[in-house]
Amino acid sequence: MLRIFVFKRRTLYIALTVLLLLVIGIVAAVALSGSDETFSETIKYAHKKISAEQAKVLMEKNPDLVVFDVRDEKEYLQGHLPQATLISQKELKKKLTSFDQEKIYMIYAKNDKTSAKAAEILSNNGFSKVYVLNGGIDHWPYEIE
């Protein structure tokens, strides 16, 4: 019941040629990409959402933490997180070069959508330690200034 497949010499040469071309194509694609990054390295500049509890710990353990409030001035004056600096998204874009990319940044606003947009500005410009307060300031149960 064991069958032995017999290939004609021509069929064998065609199969080997196709296989060789496939291997050459893969090697060329890897060489031309010029990148030896793994998948995880290509997404290293993503921001992370954190809870109020995590944000409080982050603030306590990192005295150099930069906290950005991206709400409007009226809301900021009514109350903001300790250490928070008021900054608009437009201002954030303008001042990117003056910020230290090695520092840790936490961003919050009234809602997640606004915070995420500001965090993307930093993340897309090479800032690797960017956090967003999940739920915004409305979910901050601790003291505000």
Rank of each mutant, 00 (worst) to 15 (best):
M1D: 08
L2V: 15
R3F: 15
F5E: 15
V6L: 14
F7P: 10
R10P: 02
R10V: 03
L12E: 07
I14H: 02
V18C: 09
L20T: 11
L21F: 05
V23Y: 02
G25C: 05
V30A: 09
V30Q: 14
A31V: 09
L32W: 13
S33L: 12
S35K: 08
S35L: 05
E37Q: 10
T38V: 11
T42A: 11
T42Y: 05
I43L: 14
I43A: 08
S51A: 07
A52S: 10
Q54I: 12
Q54V: 15
K56S: 07
V57Q: 11
L58P: 12
M59R: 09
M59Y: 05
K61T: 14
P63K: 14
D64Q: 05
F68Q: 01
F68C: 00
D72L: 00
D72G: 01
K74Y: 03
H80T: 02
L81D: 00
A84V: 00
T85A: 01
T85Y: 00
K90V: 11
L92R: 01
T97Q: 13
K103F: 05
Y105C: 04
D112L: 07
D112Q: 06
N125I: 08
K129F: 11
V130L: 13
G135S: 14
I137T: 11
I137A: 03
P141Y: 02
Y142G: 01
